[in-house]
């Protein structure tokens, strides 16, 4: 088993990958998952985090089989100004 890390939208382009798999023995939090998957890159301040498709904080616990996602602020819907 492993921890799956996903990157979306502009963050995927910044990091240069859409997915990574991590050894659960090396990673206990979302922040550590970011560091391990990005070779220690600094996380942009506006990054949003989800653990198993639920919003979570950087210190959220992650474990074997979990999916951790990192993405920029969301911009769905429409009908008014998206700037």
């Amino acid at each position: 088993m492993s921890i799956t890390v996903k990157f979306f939208a502009s963050l995927r382009e910044t990091v240069g990958k859409e997915e990574a798999r991590l050894d659960p023995a090396q990673v206990q939090t979302a922040q550590q998952a970011w560091a391990a998957a990005t070779d220690g890159r600094e996380m942009p301040a506006n990054t949003l985090i989800a653990v198993n498709m639920e919003y979570a904080g950087a210190d959220a616990a992650v474990a074997d089989g979990d999916e951790v996602a990192f993405f920029p602020p969301v911009t769905g819907g429409c009908g008014d100004a998206a700037r």
Partner: peptide
């Protein structure tokens, strides 16, 4: 609509 726009994971 407000919840969707502010929280649903879509990116344009």
């Amino acid at each position: 609509i407000e919840e969707l726009k502010s929280r649903a994971p879509f990116w344009k």
